[in-house]
Design a protein around this nucleic acid. Structure first.
Lengths: 189, 189
DNA sequence: TACTAAAACTAATACCATTAGTTTTTGGAG
DNA sequence: CTCCAAAAACTAATGGTATTAGTTTTAGTA
């Protein structure tokens, strides 16, 4: 089906990229590192991807889908609104803690306007929307609130990773307190 | 006082780095670009800074102080808690919109454990703390809430910049709705 | 078995940061 | 007023990165 000389392919490259991102973060995902780890020379990678950006885009897509699966699992057991929000918040931070490299990959897509990326993001947004749609807000406000919850969670992850939280105060507790603040604010009309 | 051959100095370099960051983002802040813009050769920069990381640290510090001044001004007119939170939130997003390169610089300090950086960050945290200290939360919860507000605002900025908001919905409105959710959640016990 | 196309390769270019070693310059000491 | 030492510039070189062009290898298919 693929004719002559079946060697490395896109899937193999992206799997290796996942591995490298998990070990060393996005900074380690380079054509040079990929080639070394795959025991080929870096120009050979251009037979499969146009360049590093395209590799990172495919990696972002893979990471987004893994992230979605993780969040989905966490919300499977039917829960009411508040519980669903807590479950999503907890899962979001768990994923980012356990897979910092993948989280970095999915958040720093080199081309956010890409169709495939937007579709994958939409699935996550829909998941969060379900949890929030129980609130007394109108639909527009609910979409704003989804942005708010995503921003809160991403902000917590990103500021923590960048050393923005210096006071000796438990991070998990910060998550819990702020989820409660968000839930209360959402339901108090 | 500085003896022989007074040429370029740290201040001049950082001012140019600010200029470059404002125009082209942190990606454009390189030793090569700095040297070109200052009409010197890049190795000469090493007479004034140990390397690019040190330059970026000094730039982050400068950006943090400018950011602090901006937020400070926005909260000068004595306001009650909720109004202060709205003012800080608005100013935070304004600064990030008007100076995306500086915001990027201050948030991506190459060494968050640096003393000078931590002191500058603390000033900003204190500013936000003042606004939040009106709430009925205990002190520990208030610190968590400061983290929450910072995370919400940073998340909004960062997700927007990275193309994370695709629905045709006004960004400023997202800010306003989520500030109200936060304020309500903060005050409802 | 031979051809073809994919996938590897080598070689080269053009960036980047950084180090080592050399030259230039100039304020202040004599 | 001269000279000298130290600061700040320079050149040259190394090694890292992405990428392009052109060549060789290889394996499935005709």
């Amino acid at each position: 089906m693929m004719s002559p000389r079946t060697g490395i392919n896109q899937e193999i490259i992206i799997n290796k990229a996942v591995e490298i991102a998990e070990k060393g973060g996005m900074e380690a995902v380079t054509m040079a590192t990929l080639a070394r780890e795959l025991s080929i020379k870096s120009p050979s990678l251009y037979n499969h991807f146009k360049g590093l950006k395209e590799v990172k885009l495919a990696l972002a897509l893979k990471a987004l889908n893994l992230f979605y699966q993780y969040l989905k699992k966490a919300t499977l057991n039917q829960k009411d609104g508040s519980e669903a929000i807590r479950a999503i918040g907890k899962a979001y931070i768990e994923f980012a803690n356990q897979h910092p490299g993948l989280y970095e990959a999915l958040i720093s897509s080199p081309d956010p306007s890409s169709n495939t990326i937007q579709i994958a993001e939409e699935a996550i947004v829909d998941l969060i929307m379900e949890a929030i749609s129980v609130s007394p807000l109108n639909e527009k406000e609910q979409i704003h609130a989804v942005r708010g919850l995503r921003s809160l969670l991403h902000g917590l992850v990103d500021l923590k990773r960048k050393g923005g939280f210096n006071l000796p105060l438990d991070f998990e507790e910060s998550l819990e307190v702020n989820l409660e603040i968000f839930i209360k604010g959402l339901n108090e009309k």
